[in-house]
Simulated scan of single mutants.
Amino acid sequence: MIITDEAKKILEEAFVSNDCDCLKATLQKSCCGTSLVFYLGKLEDGDEPVSINGISVLMEDDVRKRAESVTITVENGELAIHDDASSGCC
């Protein structure tokens, strides 16, 4: 996963305004297999996040493998997720 510098700034602002400290990533089943879902969260004791461009990202190993093709960037002032592995079948 790549988090651009622009996206990092927006995420850090979102952390402050939502009293969060990490980005959590999970997999959700869809008509095309699995899709990545991201949400803001708070780290708990025992969590072992991955640091991506200074952003703490909490995800399981299977999610980490799926997220390898993802870039979180900014388009028109908003976060955008580009997934090179997405088939776009849905």
Rank of each mutant, 00 (worst) to 15 (best):
residue 45 D to N: 15
residue 28 Q to V: 15
residue 60 E to M: 01
residue 2 I to R: 13
residue 48 E to Y: 08
residue 52 I to S: 08
residue 44 E to W: 01
residue 7 A to E: 03
residue 43 L to I: 08
residue 1 M to P: 02
residue 62 D to Y: 10
residue 53 N to I: 00
residue 20 C to F: 03
residue 19 D to H: 14
residue 5 D to Y: 14
residue 41 G to L: 09
residue 16 V to I: 07
residue 15 F to S: 00
residue 89 C to D: 15
residue 53 N to T: 04
residue 68 E to F: 05
residue 53 N to M: 04
residue 70 V to R: 08
residue 30 S to N: 15
residue 75 E to W: 01
residue 8 K to D: 04
residue 26 T to I: 12
residue 45 D to V: 05
residue 57 V to H: 10
residue 4 T to A: 13
residue 62 D to H: 07
residue 22 C to Q: 09
residue 81 I to Q: 08
residue 33 G to W: 14
residue 85 A to E: 07
residue 25 A to P: 03
residue 26 T to W: 04
residue 74 V to H: 09
residue 25 A to N: 07
residue 43 L to C: 10
residue 49 P to R: 04
residue 73 T to M: 09
residue 44 E to Q: 11
residue 77 G to E: 09
residue 28 Q to R: 14
residue 77 G to N: 11
residue 19 D to R: 15
residue 24 K to Q: 14
residue 84 D to S: 05
residue 67 A to G: 10
residue 4 T to C: 02
residue 58 L to Q: 05
residue 84 D to V: 03
residue 25 A to L: 10
residue 40 L to P: 01
residue 21 D to F: 01
residue 43 L to G: 04
residue 37 V to L: 03
residue 23 L to P: 03
residue 36 L to Q: 09
residue 62 D to M: 03
residue 62 D to C: 00
residue 34 T to V: 11
residue 84 D to L: 11
residue 39 Y to F: 12
residue 63 V to M: 06
residue 21 D to L: 08
residue 72 I to M: 10
residue 24 K to R: 14
residue 76 N to W: 12
residue 11 L to A: 02
residue 89 C to M: 12
residue 36 L to H: 11
residue 5 D to M: 11
residue 30 S to F: 13
residue 48 E to T: 15
residue 3 I to N: 08
residue 43 L to N: 09
residue 56 S to G: 06
residue 2 I to E: 13
residue 51 S to I: 00
residue 16 V to G: 00
residue 56 S to I: 05
residue 4 T to N: 06
residue 20 C to A: 15
residue 88 G to H: 14
residue 23 L to C: 10
residue 23 L to G: 09
residue 20 C to G: 02
residue 19 D to T: 05
residue 11 L to W: 05
residue 7 A to F: 08
residue 24 K to H: 10
residue 82 H to D: 06
residue 34 T to N: 14
residue 38 F to E: 06
residue 39 Y to A: 02
residue 75 E to P: 00
residue 47 D to K: 12
residue 14 A to K: 12
residue 54 G to Y: 04
residue 38 F to R: 07
residue 25 A to M: 09
residue 79 L to E: 04
residue 8 K to Y: 01
residue 13 E to I: 00
residue 83 D to Q: 03
residue 90 C to T: 14
residue 6 E to C: 13
residue 29 K to L: 02
residue 7 A to L: 11
residue 58 L to A: 04
residue 74 V to E: 11
residue 65 K to A: 06
residue 47 D to C: 02
residue 10 I to C: 00
residue 29 K to H: 14
residue 13 E to L: 03
residue 3 I to Y: 02
residue 26 T to E: 13
residue 78 E to A: 10
residue 50 V to H: 12
residue 50 V to L: 13
residue 3 I to P: 08
residue 74 V to D: 01
residue 5 D to W: 14
residue 62 D to Q: 10
residue 34 T to I: 05
residue 5 D to S: 13
residue 65 K to H: 08
residue 48 E to P: 07
residue 81 I to V: 13
residue 61 D to C: 10
residue 27 L to G: 11
residue 29 K to E: 15
residue 73 T to S: 15
residue 83 D to I: 04
residue 50 V to R: 12
residue 63 V to E: 12
residue 47 D to E: 12
residue 54 G to C: 04
residue 61 D to N: 09
residue 17 S to V: 06
residue 5 D to C: 07
residue 78 E to T: 07
residue 26 T to H: 15
residue 29 K to S: 09
